Amino acid sequence: MRFFYFVFALLFLSGCTSSVNVHKEWSELKYYRIDFSGHEIKKLPQGARLVKEKKDVAIGVLDSNGDTGEFVVSGRITENDYIIEPMWHFYDYSEGFTTTTRDGKVKPFITYKITNKCHPDDSYTGISDNQGRTVLFATEKPCELEITFPREIHHGE
C-alpha cells in the first residue's frame, strides 16, 4: 500500500508547473538570458525563445515595462531556482566574466570592455556589478571574447 501512495505522489508532483514573470531595469540593456536549472520551460512569453539544445534556458527581450512576460515551467520554483542575467545581443552563444583581484577575491564596480574576436568592431564597455559580474556578451556563432580593463586616469598620481 505504501508503494501505491509513493507512485501516486510522484505522478502528482511531476505534473505541477509554476509561472514566473520577472521585472528588471538594466539601463540600456533589453536582452536577457534566464536559466531555470533543470525545470523544463513549458510556455514562453512573447519575445523569448529557447536556447539551442536546451529545455530549461531561454533568451528574450524585456517589454516596455521591463518585464519578461510569463514563463510556465515544470515543478515548483522560487526566485532562488533561476538565474536571469542581462545580455548584449540576442544570440545563443554567450559568456560573462567575474572581475577579481590577483588573489581571486571578487572585485566589484570595475570598468571593463568585452570585444568579439570574430568581429572586433563589436564591443561592449560597462562596469561590473556588486558581485563583480559583467554583462553576458552574446555572439551569433562560437567566437573568442577578449576582456580588457581600460586604465582610469587618476590626476595627481
Rank of each mutant, 00 (worst) to 15 (best):
I77L: 03
T101Y: 09
R133A: 01
W88Y: 15
C118D: 07
V135P: 04
T111G: 04
P86A: 10
Y91D: 15
F90Y: 14
L136Q: 14
Y82F: 10
N116T: 02
D92A: 04
H89A: 12
P120E: 06
V106P: 00
F97H: 10
V73C: 07
F71P: 12
R102D: 10
D121Q: 13
H89L: 08
N80I: 00
D81L: 02
N80Q: 08
S94K: 13
T68E: 07
R133N: 05
D121Y: 01
F109V: 00
T115H: 06
K113S: 05
T111W: 11
I114R: 11
Y124L: 04
D103N: 15
I84Q: 05
S123L: 12
V135C: 09
F97A: 03
N130G: 00
S74Q: 14
I127V: 15
R133D: 00
T68P: 02
S74V: 03
P108R: 09
H89M: 08
D121V: 07
D129H: 10
F109R: 15
V73W: 08
D81T: 00
D129G: 01
T125Q: 14
F71Q: 11
I110P: 04
D121A: 14
I110Y: 07
P108C: 05
G126A: 10
F97L: 01
K105E: 06
D81G: 04
F109W: 14
K105Q: 12
D92G: 04
V135G: 09
N130S: 07
E70M: 09
T101L: 10
V72D: 03
P108T: 03
T101F: 05
T125I: 14
V73M: 06
T78C: 02
S123A: 11
D92N: 12
Q131A: 10
R133C: 00
F90K: 12
D81E: 06
M87W: 01
P120R: 03
P108L: 07
Y93Q: 11
S128G: 05
R102S: 13
I77H: 08
C118T: 04
K113F: 01
F90G: 09
C118P: 00
D92K: 07
T78W: 02
P86N: 07
D103Q: 13
G132L: 03
G126N: 11
T98G: 06
T98A: 08
R76H: 11
P86D: 08
T99M: 13
K107G: 01
K107P: 00
T98M: 13
G126L: 14
E70P: 02
Y124N: 04
F97N: 02
P86C: 05
S123M: 08
V106T: 13
T111D: 11
S128M: 09
F90W: 10
K113V: 12
T101G: 06
T98S: 13
S128K: 14
K107L: 12
S74D: 04
T134K: 12
E85L: 04
D81A: 04
T78V: 00
G75T: 06
D129N: 15
Y124M: 02
R102A: 12
E85P: 00
F109P: 01
N116V: 01
K117D: 06
R76K: 11
T111L: 12
N116D: 15
D121F: 02
L136M: 11
S94A: 11
H119G: 01
